[in-house]
Nucleic acid binder design. Structure first.
Lengths: 356, 356
DNA sequence: TTGTACGCGTTATCAG
DNA sequence: CTGATAACGCGTACAA
C-alpha cells in the first residue's frame, strides 16, 4: 500500500496548511501562539497535523527562531560513575524544559576542551556545562566574552569565569582529617588521583594539607598520586606500607582508591580500622558493602546535575547570567575509621606478623 | 573596545564573502568543495574566515543539506556503568566521523521510549542506537517503516527489526552453568534483575534454565529477581539461604548483584567458594578485588559502542542498512567458583555454626 | 573558475 | 484573528 507522495520525505507546515484550509502562518501559530488563534481553527489545525503525522523541522525552526534548544556538556568521560551520574541528572532534568543535551568527552585531555566547546557552539548550543575549573586560556577568553550561559560543576569557585555549582573540595577533605584527628590519629597519608589538570584533586590535596597543618598533624608530604583505578589504590597502599609504616590514617580522595586500599590492606593482613583507618570520597554505592564499610564523603552528584540544569534553564528563560550554587557534602562515618590502637601502627602490625 | 557590529550575533558566509571580495557561493565552496576553487582564492577565503572567526551555522546547513550530523541514543540510564560505558565508547567513536550524539534516557520506563525516539527524529537524528530488544509496538512499527539506520546493543537478536550489535546473553549464562557443573555443582540458584521489559535479563534467566536442563541439574525454579543494586543482591542471598540451603552454586546475572551476594555471604559466615560458589556477569572493574575475586562473564561494552558507531557510520555513508555484529563474551574464572566440598552445602555450613 | 539566484521549513512582521 | 511574505544562513543548479 504505497503512500501518496513518497517524494517529500516529511510533512511540513505547508502540507498541514493546505489540508486544514488555512495559511502556513496559522499553522505555526496554532502550535506556538495558540492564544492568537480561534478555538475552532486551532483544533482543526492540530487535528490535521496529528492526522498527517506532522512534526516541525528542528533545523528550520532553529534557523528562523535562533533557538536550537540544545545545551552542551563537556566532561572528562562518561565511563566514570561520578561524571555519568551528574550528567544523567542534568540531561534528565533539563530535558523537562525542552532542551536536549549533547555530551562531549575530553578523555581527560584538557588540551582538546576548547575544540569541543567550539563544536558545541557551532551546533548552536545555547548553554554549556563543565566540570571543574576552566583552565584552558583560550576557553577562558572565550567564556569571558561570550554571552553564552555556562556553569561548571564539582568545584566551588567563587571567582571562576563562569558560576560554579559545586562543593568545597578542600574543606570536605579537611573535615575528614578533622574526623580522623578526633579519633586520635596523628600520622597521615593521602591517596589522590593525578592532580595535573584536575583542580578537584588539587583542592582535595590542599584540603588534606590544610587540615593537617591546622591540627599540627604529620603527613603533609605523604601524598601518593596515582591514576584513578582500584588497582592503583592498591598500589598506593603498598607504597605507603613500605615508605611510611608509622601511618595510622589513610585518606583517599575517591572511593575507587579507597576500595583498592582496603582490598590491599586485607591482602597484606592489616586490619581496618584497628591497624589503620581508611577513608574515601564520593559515597559510591558500594561504600557500605566494602570490608569494613567505608567512612567517606557524600558528594551530591545528582543534586549538582539538577541544580546546573535549573540554573541554566533559568538563565536561558530570563536571558541573564546563571547564578552559582554552593552545595554541601556530608561526612559519612562508617567502620573503616576508628581510634588507632595504643602504639599501634603499620610497623607494629607488621611486627605482629600479620602481614604477608 | 566595542566590536564593529554587535547587531549581528555571528559571522556568516556573507560577511566572509564581502571581506574576501568573493561571492557567498565561493565561500561555501572553499569549505565544502575545495577542488572547485582556485588555490589562491581558497586560501584567501579560508584566511579571512579564520580572521573573522567564521563558523558555519549548523541549523542552516542542516536545513539546506538535509543532514544534521546528529545521531540519537536511547538507553535506560547513564547512571548504570554498563550503559554509560557503551555510550561513552559510542559517542567518542562516532564523533570521529563528525557526528554528535544526543543521549536520551528512559529511566527504565519503557512506555516512554517511543516518545524519546520521536523527539530525536524531530531533531533530525540520522541514526539511532538502542539497548536490547525493541518491545514497544509503536516503535517497532516506526522502525519497520522508517529508513533511519538503527541498531540495538547488548542483545544478539538475529530476527529483530533492527540489526543487533551484541552478544548471546542466554548462552553466556548457560556456559557459566557449565563451568560450575564441571566443578561438580548440582544445586543451583539464580539471582537476576527484574525481567519485565528487559530482554537481556530474560535471556540470561533462560540461559540459566537451559544450562541446567542440558546437564540435568537442579534449580530451574530457583530464580530470585530483584532490583539492580548491591543491597538487593545481598537480600537475594538472604532469601536463598532461607529458602534453599541445599544450593552450592549461585549464579548472578550482574556483578552488582554478585557483589551483594558475596558481601552477604561474608556477613553470614559462609565461605566462598568452599561453602558456596558465586558468579557474576559484566566483569566490572571491581570484580578482581571482591572477596574472593569474582568469576564472571566479560561483556565487551566498549567494543559494542565502537561497533555500533562503525555500523551506523557505514550505513550513513553508503546509504544502506547497517549490519549487525555478534560479539563474544568471555568466561573469566577467578576464585569465587570452586568445587563444592564433599557433602557440603549451605545446610552443612549452617550446621558447622559458621553462620551468624 | 566564479557569480547569481533559488529553496530548504519555519517563524516573525506587517497588513488586513 | 488571519493571510501574505520576508527573512534566517547555507548549498547548489545554472549561467557566465
Amino acid at each position: 500500500m504505497p503512500r501518496k507522495r513518497q517524494s517529500k520525505s516529511r510533512i511540513n507546515v505547508q502540507d498541514v496548511a493546505e489540508k486544514a484550509g488555512v495559511s502556513v502562518a496559522t499553522v505555526s501559530r496554532a502550535f506556538n501562539l495558540p492564544d492568537m488563534v480561534s478555538e475552532d481553527v486551532r483544533a482543526r489545525v492540530i487535528a490535521t497535523a496529528k492526522r498527517l503525522g506532522y512534526s516541525p523541522n528542528a533545523a528550520a525552526r532553529a534557523l528562523r527562531s535562533r533557538k536550537t534548544h540544545i545545551v552542551g556538556a563537556v566532561i572528562p568521560s562518561l565511563d566514570y560513575a561520578i561524571y555519568a551520574k551528574m550528567v544523567n541528572a542534568f540531561q534528565s532534568s533539563i530535558s523537562q524544559h525542552g532542551y536536549m543535551t549533547i555530551v562531549l568527552t575530553t578523555g581527560f585531555d584538557n588540551r582538546t576542551i576548547f575544540d569541543k566547546v567550539k563544536l558545541l557552539v557551532e551546533r548552536g548550543a545555547e548553554a554549556l556545562v563543565f566540570v571543574g575549573a576552566i583552565e584552558d586560556p583560550a576557553l577562558r577568553r572565550f567564556l569571558k566574552e561570550s554571552p553564552l550561559p555556562a556553569v561548571t560543576t564539582y568545584s566551588h569557585l567563587p571567582n571562576e569565569i563562569v558560576p560554579s555549582i559545586g562543593f568545597d573540595n578542600a574543606e570536605s577533605v579537611a573535615s575528614m582529617v578533622g574526623h580522623l584527628a578526633d579519633l586520635g590519629h596523628k600520622e597521615f597519608a593521602l591517596v589522590s588521583s593525578i592532580a595535573d589538570g584536575n583542580d578537584r584533586q588539587r583542592a582535595r590535596i590542599e584540603g588534606y594539607r590544610t587540615g593537617l597543618r591546622r591540627l599540627k598533624l604529620s603527613g603533609v608530604d605523604r601524598v601518593f598520586s596515582h591514576p584513578y583505578s582500584i588497582e592503583d589504590g592498591a598500589a598506593a597502599m603498598h607504597e605507603i606500607y613500605n615508605a611510611c609504616p608509622q601511618v595510622t590514617a589513610i585518606v583517599c580522595t575517591s572511593d575507587v582508591h579507597a576500595f583498592g586500599v582496603l582490598s590491599e590492606c586485607r591482602r597484606m593482613g592489616l586490619r581496618v580500622p584497628q591497624d589503620v583507618s581508611v577513608t574515601g570520597f564520593d559515597d559510591a554505592e558500594y561504600a557500605t558493602r566494602l570490608e569494613p564499610p567505608l567512612t567517606t564523603v557524600f558528594v551530591p552528584a545528582d543534586e549538582m546535575g539538577v541544580a546546573a540544569a535549573t540554573a541554566l534553564h533559568k538563565a536561558l528563560a530570563k536571558d541573564q547570567k546563571p547564578t552559582g550554587v554552593r552545595l554541601d557534602t556530608k561526612l559519612i562515618v562508617r567502620l573503616s575509621s576508628g581510634s588507632p590502637a595504643k602504639a599501634q601502627d603499620l610497623t607494629s602490625a607488621r611486627r605482629a606478623g600479620r602481614s604477608r
